[in-house]
Amino acid sequence: MNDPVLQAIRSRRVVRAMTRDPVQQDQLKTVLDSARYAPHAGNRRLHRYVAVTRPRILRALRMVSPGMLQRPAAAVVVCVDWARVESYGFHPASPGPYIDVGTAAATMLLAAHGIGLAAGPVTSFSRTAAATILNLPEGLRPELIVCLGHPAAEQPPAVRRQNGPAWEDLIQWDRG
Rank of each mutant, 00 (worst) to 15 (best):
R48P: 04
Q172N: 10
D100K: 07
R45H: 14
G149E: 02
A51R: 07
D81F: 14
P137A: 14
V14K: 07
I171W: 01
P97V: 03
L46W: 04
P92C: 09
H91V: 11
W167N: 06
P121E: 08
P39R: 14
I9W: 09
A60L: 11
D26L: 11
T53P: 06
H47T: 11
G102I: 08
N43Q: 14
L61K: 00
V85S: 10
P55T: 05
S87M: 14
E168G: 07
L110W: 00
P39V: 10
L170T: 14
S11K: 03
L109V: 10
D169W: 02
L144A: 08
G42R: 13
N135C: 12
Q162G: 12
R44G: 04
Q155E: 06
A75W: 01
A130Q: 01
M108R: 01
A112L: 03
E143V: 10
V14D: 09
I145Q: 06
P156K: 12
D169Y: 03
P156Y: 11
L148K: 00
A41T: 14
L109H: 11
G96T: 12
H40G: 15
R44P: 03
A131R: 01
A129G: 01
Q27M: 08
R44K: 15
P39T: 14
L109F: 11
L46T: 03
R59N: 07
D26W: 08
G176C: 11
W173H: 08
S34F: 10
A83Y: 04
N163S: 15
D21N: 13
Q172L: 12
V23C: 02
V52G: 00
T123I: 15
L28N: 05
R84D: 05
R71E: 13
V77M: 05
N43W: 10
G176S: 11
S65L: 07
R16N: 12
V85M: 04
D100Y: 07
P4D: 08
P165G: 08
A106P: 01
S87Q: 14
G176V: 13
D21C: 11
W173S: 03
N2C: 03
R45V: 07
P72L: 02
V146Y: 01
V159N: 13
T19H: 03
L32C: 09
P165L: 13
V78T: 06
A104L: 06
Y98D: 13
R45Q: 15
R16D: 06
S94T: 06
A119C: 11
R59P: 01
V50H: 01
L144M: 14
